[in-house]
């Protein structure tokens, strides 16, 4: 079938007009992958097109890029899935990475974040002979995180990293959870306390689901981050706005069946945190002027009882 590719190019060695979009029309087998198509371009049409790829089997993590605006491993994305009727495929480099050339991005920031979470097992002591004795279940659970191939797709499409470069990010946090839940590791609390930190830690995630959506390996980084939040709370690491926010949210919903936004804002900041509360005043005033200030004393929801039952059930099921 005919495949139409529109590829974003970048040549750092040109002083001007160094970013452009280039069209390639090629003829390939319909069940080919987008990587097959790009290799075909590179081999037969334009040898200057730059991209990384190696295994062609979705295990090395080299070929992440954006296809029609969403990050994909192109070796496991078939042309007919995305463009069944021969629609134009827009190919661009991954987001949240600096571009080196064409579709090749600088992966050093990605790996710097991995290094940030002390990415190796830290047991207090090792068995003198043989292996650590732990249950198969405990190891099996870690398989999800071990599936991560560090392709960077989750980082590419992370909406927090777009605005906050300090965020440790989905891949590194998923990697962190792999050690937090490893029964052989003895730094669990230290790890959780570090990840719980206000700046860039687990509470920075806005739960936009992008990382879950784009992960080609089913790692579901966001779910791993939520696991870490719960574990942090369990060990008593509660001195974060994130914890207060969650807590206030839960209290307000179970009490009234509604979210009490005024209380949420104040409690998330911390009721003794004067400077943060002062910061909230202009926000409140703006909301007041626009008629969007939530009521100071919230009404109860009509089916409040049902909501309370639901909340109770959720807690019991945990």
């Amino acid at each position: 079938m005919e495949v139409k590719l529109k590829v974003k190019r970048f040549d750092p060695e040109k002083s001007k007009d160094n970013i452009w979009y280039q069209d390639y029309n090629i003829d390939i087998h319909p069940s080919s992958t987008i990587l097959d198509a790009l290799i075909n371009v590179r081999e037969e049409v334009d040898g200057t097109l730059g991209l990384r790829c190696a295994c062609r089997a979705s295990i090395c993590g080299s070929c992440g890029m954006k296809v029609n605006g969403q990050a994909k491993l192109v070796c496991k994305t078939r042309v007919e899935e995305i463009a069944p009727k021969g629609e134009i495929l827009l190919i661009e480099p991954m987001g949240n990475h600096t571009i080196i050339r064409d579709l090749i991005v600088d992966i050093s920031t990605f790996f710097a974040k991995i290094e940030q979470i002390t990415p190796y097992l830290q047991p207090d002591s090792e068995p003198e002979t043989g292996e650590f004795i732990v249950s198969n279940e405990s190891m099996d659970k870690l398989l999800t995180e071990m599936n991560c191939i560090m392709c960077g797709l989750c980082v590419s499409d992370c909406t927090v990293l777009e605005v906050d470069k300090t965020f440790i990010g989905p891949a590194a946090l998923a990697k962190a959870s792999r050690f937090v839940y490893d029964p052989r590791d003895d730094q669990t609390n230290q790890r959780l306390n570090y990840l719980n930190d206000e700046q860039g830690g687990i509470w920075d995630c806005t739960r936009c689901m992008q990382c879950v959506e784009v992960c080609p390996k089913g790692v579901s980084p966001m779910d791993r981050i939520m696991d870490l939040r719960e574990s942090a709370i369990e060990i008593g690491a509660k001195k974060t706005h994130g914890y207060h926010h969650t807590n206030s949210f839960e209290k307000s919903v179970t009490a009234n069946g509604r979210l009490d936004e005024t209380r949420l804002a104040i409690e998330s900041a911390g009721i003794f945190n004067i400077s943060r509360l002062i910061d909230l005043i202009p926000v409140g005033l703006k909301a007041l002027i626009r008629g969007k200030l939530p009521p100071l004393f919230p009404h109860k929801a009509e089916d409040n009882k049902k909501i309370q039952e639901l909340a109770k059930k959720i807690k019991e099921d945990k």
């Binding site: 068995p127 650590f132 004795i133 732990v134 249950s135 198969n136 190891m139 870690l142 052989r184």
Partner: peptide, 16 residues
């Protein structure tokens, strides 16, 4: 294994 590989295990918790 001691470096951190999450090998599959048997019932006894040893490598399977």
């Amino acid at each position: 294994e001691r470096m951190g590989v999450i090998f599959s295990r048997g019932e006894d918790g040893k490598l399977g």
